[in-house]
Amino acid sequence: MATPGLPPLPPALKAIQHYLKTATEHEQRDQVVAYYCQLYAMQKGMTIDRKSPDCKHFLVSLMDLLEKKKQQLIDNEAVHNEMVGQAHVENYALKVFLFADNEDRAGRFSKNVVKSFYTAGMLFDVLTNFGELSDDVEKNRKYAKWKAAYIHRCLKNGETPT
């Protein structure tokens, strides 16, 4: 899924695709989450490749989008104050994680649970925008990613997760 307003993602930047997709999915639901997902994608993209013409073109366009968005969200403190933003993203990520965890513990396995664990794992990644993760967040990040992969594998193979 391409991000509206951005050129096609160059193959070299495939690693940031899911963060951009999560941002697009949250554009209507939670603009703060969407903004910080794109900021994370920007920073990660810059470490991967910002020299080749197609990557540079993409990253400059993403930067234009972020600057524009920050101007538009002038009254949103969570976007303009990163400490408030961090608390916002962390609360949201935890909410998604707890939903998936509760479903999992109740034995209700579905694609939705896989997606929630997966999204929570990515949102915990996004929290590295704000510095080193706490031990608890780091633990949840690893657990969410492992659970998403595990339940996905079970569903695919017709097995019941344990």
Binding site: L39, M42, Q43, M46, R50, K51, K56, L59, V60, M63, L66, E67, K70, H80, E82
Partner: peptide
């Protein structure tokens, strides 16, 4: 050849700095 190479790297380096500068500015806005 080497002069062109040097010019290109200098240009690339300046452009990289611009992206980093914009990122730093964005996060301070």
């Amino acid at each position: 050849g080497s002069t062109i190479g040097t010019a290109s790297s200098t240009q690339a380096s300046t452009e990289q700095d611009e992206l980093s500068q914009r990122l730093a500015k964005l996060r301070q806005m």
